[in-house]
Design a protein around this nucleic acid. Structure first.
Length: 312
RNA sequence: AGGUGAGUAGCUCAAUUGGCAGAGCGUCGGUCUCCAAAACCGAAGGUUGCGAGUUCGAUUCCCGCCUCACCUG
């Protein structure tokens, strides 16, 4: 019988990581992080990475896999996650995937289209052309080569226009011809999907408390030392929540107080986006959390409900 | 106490010579297939501090009051 596969989703600061840790300990499993920012080394405090103790106690995959100066993508994530899953399945070990990057979750669940990955060089060139000639011209070009994609992409959405043109340049085929599955509800692995959710007011309070603690734990110092590294931060790492705002502060653009406030607001916005994504996932068992709940108590409860753990 | 300035959306502020009260941010909803903690789209939200006056019509002009900030004593 295949090993258990659990996937935990939830908004930022909902307690996913702690639950994953408790479950992994109890089940003797390993954790796969589904997080576009915890992949960066030395970005620990602001990404709410598990503590060194926890990382030592339970094997975590997809954490600290790239330098802050490197770029990362959903494609790389899926490649690495698939590899880790294959190894764990081979070893018959329970897999607990947990994380809050919704698009990565979707990609892990349903896969991405079988086409070309990101090409920074081409992307950069198209972007320059867009800046020069304006979005209308690029949108017009897209409409000619791929009317279907043009219908779905807004004129102002230059990010997706660029990506569509990039794929066309790389393959000679419209990006819409690659789009097949995604949001199909057909999952590539037999996951048990678990969602953690708080009443919104409580969730916001948890976010504020977490941000406050990050600052107390030395977020500013962490950002300072990242900026002092010889290699500059990659575009992605530099826009990470909690980092972008502190960078602005360190550049003298805003006060620390304002920066921290922005981190809170942006975290709330992020949580809102996560909620929107999660509504579209099929088959999630949502747990409505109470303030008396702890990661351990929920883990115990889940394990007691044997429906989640056929394999043990 | 006197002087000056300001009170307009949850917040910061716009609104030609009086002429349908707007923006940014936030909030809410949505999109999302190799940058996604990104990017983009949409919506709601106002007794213009209170009261009276002039006027066809007042956020705008006149009068009184309240609140806040700064200055002077």
């Amino acid at each position: 019988m295949a090993a258990d596969m659990l996937l935990i989703m939830g908004c930022t600061a909902s307690g996913k990581s702690s639950l994953a840790f408790s479950l992994a300990q109890r089940l003797g499993g390993e954790i796969i992080s589904i997080d576009s920012m915890k992949v960066y080394r030395r970005m620990d405090i602001g990404t709410a990475k598990p503590s060194a103790d926890r990382l030592a106690a339970v094997k975590h995959h997809l954490i600290d896999v790239v330098e802050p100066s490197e770029s990362f993508s959903m494609g790389k994530f899926i490649e690495l996650a698939d590899k880790a899953i294959a190894e764990l399945q081979q070893a018959q070990r329970p897999i607990i995937a947990a994380g809050g990057t919704p698009m990565y979750i979707r990609g892990l669940l349903e896969g991405i289209f079988d086409g070309p990955g990101a090409d920074a060089e081409i992307r950069e060139r198209i972007k320059m052309e867009l800046d020069e000639r304006g979005p209308e011209a690029m949108y017009q070009r897209l409409a000619e080569i791929d009317p279907e994609a043009a219908r779905k992409i807004h004129l102002n959405d230059s990010r997706r226009i660029i990506r569509a043109l990039e794929v066309y340049e790389l393959t000679g085929k419209p990006i819409s011809s690659f789009h097949t599955h995604f949001r199909s509800g057909n999952y590539r692995y037999p996951w048990q999907l678990i969602g953690l959710r708080w009443e919104k007011e409580i969730g916001n309070r948890r976010i504020n408390a977490r941000v406050k603690k990050m600052v107390q734990d030395g977020l500013v110092g962490e950002v300072e030392s990242l900026l002092a590294e010889p290699e500059p931060l990659s575009e992605q790492a530099a826009v990470a929540l909690g980092y972008a705002e502190i960078i602005e502060h360190l550049q003298g653009k805003i006060s620390l107080e304002d920066a921290v406030e922005r981190v809170k607001i942006n975290s709330r916005r992020f949580a809102k986006g996560q909620r929107t994504w999660y509504r579209s996932f099929v088959g999630v068992n949502w747990i409505d959390l109470q303030e008396s709940d702890t990661a351990d108590s929920i883990a115990d409860r889940l394990i007691a409900e044997s429906r989640y753990f056929k394999g043990n």
